[in-house]
Simulated scan of single mutants.
Amino acid sequence: MSRVPECSGFDVAEFVRRVQHPLTTARPLPLHEPRFSGREWEYVRDCLESGWVSSVGSYVDRFEGMIAERLGASHAVATVNGTAALHVALLLAGVETGDEVLVPALTFVATANAVRYCNATPHLVDSALDTLGIDPDRLEDYLRRIASVGPDGCVNRLTSRRIRAVVPMHVFGHPVSMDRLMEVASRWRLTVVEDAAEAMGSLYRGSPVGGLGHVGIVSFNGNKIVTCGGGGAVVTHDAELARAARHLTTTAKLPHPWRYRHDLTGFNYRLPNLNAALGCAQMEQLDGFIAAKRRLTESYAESLDDLPGVRLVTEPAGCRSIYWLNAVLVPDQDARDAVLAATHRAGLLTRPAWDPLHLLPMYADCPRDDLPIAEELFARIVCLPSGVAAPGS
């Protein structure tokens, strides 16, 4: 992705008019609303009639199988939400108290929160303009400056703490350069915990994201392409990691017909059957949802074509994105703020990118690289209405 030239005469009104063109519907129009047009009612009713509504039931097993198959993984363990999945994935990756974990500064706060849940420290790194996610080349240059590999793995020479893992997050559904990132991770002895919360169905060089790292996660929050209302999953090719994930997320209870014995500090993180039933019906429609979202992207691209100072964020080369959120880059932060105000007045519930983690008070003191691209993207991104139910999709 090339940089958008600065445009002192940026036409906010024309931008709003062009964004409205594909969206012929009543206002307000949410950023991302779900579509329930399959067998959701049938499956949820079956749960209610059978009484299997909690964390055990046939829909949980079925949903996990559908997730694993879709992501080309051997195992999926369904959780109450994506953040819980990420917390467990980090524990499975060996993250311990006092470790550091490399995370992009431009990400949803849950990526860093899950690191803190492990009593570890988020270590913030910069993004790439073409993917919006971690820049592997810049990451390796940074590690050469501040880290070394020894008997204990990768160590931050500035803090003397172990850097245990790296968490690539596929921003808005656009895949990170995973091949290059895996090379860097291997060289620096880092475990890759793949945060595909926003990318269920995206492909990197023909392979589904979420199953490309050592362990991965997906999310089924109410605003995701597939939703259970909440929900997430840990994804892995390793049978032992999957067994450990199931144990940890079920309060680490040892199997017994009636006794309640636990051998670890576990978590009540399993997804209820009721939510899994909704997820099964949604997964059956995933291909249609992706097609609808890509049609909406094409409509935006056509409508915004040749508008000075605006560029639609498109899928990286060699990737097929679900375009979970359609994002545009405008010239600068003043233009971004003017666009956000004008679109909200017009009933289009746009939003900026998340505040970068180093600008949040609880992560302001975390170790970090220089973050010029993350800061530039934050200043210039506007996310457009992108739900599968949006007209134009």
Rank of each mutant, 00 (worst) to 15 (best):
G206K: 01
Y204F: 10
V192W: 13
T251A: 08
E194G: 08
S219M: 04
L203E: 04
R189D: 12
D141G: 14
S202A: 09
V209A: 03
A165V: 04
S148Y: 11
V176P: 02
E198F: 11
P175E: 04
N221C: 10
S186F: 08
V171W: 09
G206Y: 06
T159H: 06
T227I: 09
L143Q: 03
V209G: 02
R189G: 09
A245D: 01
A185P: 06
P208E: 10
R187E: 15
V166K: 06
A197R: 11
T250K: 14
D141C: 15
S207P: 05
S160P: 07
A233R: 00
E194P: 07
H262S: 11
G232H: 02
G210F: 05
G230R: 13
R145H: 12
R161K: 15
G229C: 03
V167H: 05
V193A: 14
Y260R: 12
P255I: 08
A197V: 09
T227S: 14
L264E: 15
C228I: 06
R189S: 09
S177W: 14
E194W: 11
L264Q: 14
L181Q: 06
H247A: 07
M182V: 11
V209H: 07
V167E: 00
K253Y: 08
S186T: 13
T227W: 07
V193W: 06
G229P: 01
H256Y: 11
Y142S: 09
V171S: 06
C154L: 07
L203A: 00
M178N: 06
P168T: 00
I163W: 03
A147E: 04
S186E: 13
R145I: 03
L248N: 05
M200K: 01
V235G: 02
G213R: 02
L254V: 14
D195V: 09
Y260K: 07
V192D: 12
G173E: 02
D141V: 09
A165M: 00
A252T: 07
S219R: 05
C228L: 14
A185R: 05
G173L: 00
A199D: 01
M169Q: 12
S202C: 03
